[in-house]
Computed example of a mutant assay.
Amino acid sequence: MNYAKPKPRYLIPLRLAIYSSALFAVVHLHAEQGKLTVAISTDMPPYVMDSGSQGLEVDIVRQALEGYELNFVQMPLSDVQNAVQDKKADVAIGVLMNGGDIFYSDHLVTFVNFAITKKSDDIAIDSIDDLKTHPVLTWQNAYLELGDEFQTLFAPGAEYRSNYHEFGDQAKQVAQFWKADKQVIVIDRSIFEFFSKAMKQSSDSVEYHSIFPPVTEFKASFKDKAVKDTFNKKLKEMCQNGKYVKLLEMYDVELEATVCDKLPQ
């Protein structure tokens, strides 16, 4: 009769050690996968505030990615657009689709942009074409986001580019508007009013010229499709249960229509 040789006792703890190491590696991997670096703009209240620690965009992302450990990294808007492609972040908030081997969410936030002038300047702005003879103050890459006619006037190399001035910091953009006369600021109304109030300037002294599309909507970009799918699912739930509208109310953002109205059913 053949008997199996008993395995040396020292192999048992060795196998346990190998198993424990493998288990630790798997747990560690899942822990790392639960951490996300999120690229977000520099402060532009009420969307991003207090060095990226709060704001409408920040809270939307926190709720939509609940369960993940999020590390928000602020950078200029021009860098946010390509942060995932450039491997600077796992997620980038407030971007437009521009291809690349990445994944885009449904629209998550809406901006309502106006051309704004001081009433005392008495500048008539009835169309985008009326902007070309005035200093125009915008955010970074605005020429890519406000339609073909605006881009034709102010893209790099365009005829009226010298009248076009971009700001990475929208507080400085608003400050420059209040500093000098005969300028036109192109900006989201909520951002403009927030900074103007902080600077003790009254929005009653300005004219809002509605010459752009009713809203400009932005997405999030993702390195991982599964994370993007989770985000979309949660965002839809926030729309359905009223949490999205509550965030708008909390940050005093008034919209005639929200991204929730366009989410796929």
Results as ranks from 00 to 15, higher is better:
residue 201 Q to T: 05
residue 153 L to R: 06
residue 221 S to Y: 06
residue 209 H to T: 01
residue 11 L to H: 10
residue 93 I to W: 01
residue 91 V to H: 00
residue 151 Q to K: 15
residue 137 L to C: 01
residue 258 T to L: 02
residue 198 A to F: 00
residue 251 Y to G: 04
residue 150 F to Q: 03
residue 10 Y to A: 12
residue 175 A to E: 10
residue 243 K to T: 15
residue 244 Y to A: 12
residue 263 L to H: 04
residue 93 I to P: 04
residue 249 E to G: 05
residue 234 K to C: 04
residue 38 V to K: 04
residue 40 I to F: 01
residue 169 D to V: 12
residue 104 Y to M: 06
residue 133 T to Y: 15
residue 165 H to M: 09
residue 93 I to M: 08
residue 28 H to D: 12
residue 102 I to Q: 02
residue 95 V to A: 01
residue 52 G to A: 02
residue 51 S to E: 15
residue 170 Q to N: 11
residue 207 E to H: 14
residue 92 A to T: 01
residue 80 V to C: 06
residue 192 F to W: 02
residue 174 V to N: 03
residue 17 A to G: 15
residue 240 Q to R: 12
residue 199 M to C: 00
residue 137 L to E: 01
residue 85 Q to K: 13
residue 64 A to Q: 10
residue 33 Q to M: 07
residue 105 S to W: 00
residue 221 S to T: 11
residue 108 L to P: 05
residue 242 G to M: 03
residue 229 D to N: 14
residue 65 L to T: 12
residue 98 N to I: 05
residue 71 N to Y: 06
residue 57 E to G: 10
residue 218 F to K: 15
residue 263 L to V: 00
residue 54 Q to E: 15
residue 115 A to T: 04
residue 259 V to T: 14
residue 169 D to G: 06
residue 158 A to I: 02
residue 25 A to K: 05
residue 70 L to G: 09
residue 26 V to S: 08
residue 123 I to G: 15
residue 172 K to S: 12
residue 172 K to V: 04
residue 24 F to P: 09
residue 254 E to C: 06
residue 189 R to C: 00
residue 223 K to G: 14
residue 196 S to W: 00
residue 191 I to K: 08
residue 229 D to V: 15
residue 114 F to Q: 11
residue 52 G to D: 00
residue 116 I to Y: 03
residue 146 L to H: 05
residue 99 G to C: 01
residue 118 K to C: 05
residue 123 I to E: 08
residue 53 S to H: 06
residue 186 V to E: 08
residue 18 I to R: 09
residue 4 A to P: 02
residue 77 L to Q: 14
residue 218 F to N: 11
residue 210 S to G: 03
residue 90 D to S: 03
residue 44 M to Y: 11
residue 97 M to F: 10
residue 2 N to Y: 12
residue 30 H to D: 06
residue 158 A to E: 04
residue 70 L to D: 06
residue 40 I to L: 02
residue 107 H to D: 13
residue 189 R to Q: 09
residue 122 D to L: 12
residue 226 A to N: 13
residue 238 M to E: 03
residue 146 L to P: 00
residue 50 D to T: 07
residue 198 A to T: 06
residue 69 E to G: 12
residue 169 D to S: 07
residue 197 K to G: 09
residue 42 T to Y: 11
residue 94 G to R: 02
residue 111 F to K: 11
residue 21 S to M: 11
residue 173 Q to P: 03
residue 241 N to T: 07
residue 24 F to C: 13
residue 98 N to K: 12
residue 36 L to R: 09
residue 134 H to W: 15
residue 233 K to M: 13
residue 64 A to D: 13
residue 56 L to E: 04
residue 106 D to C: 10
residue 224 D to G: 11
residue 27 V to A: 10
residue 58 V to L: 00
residue 234 K to A: 13
residue 208 Y to H: 01
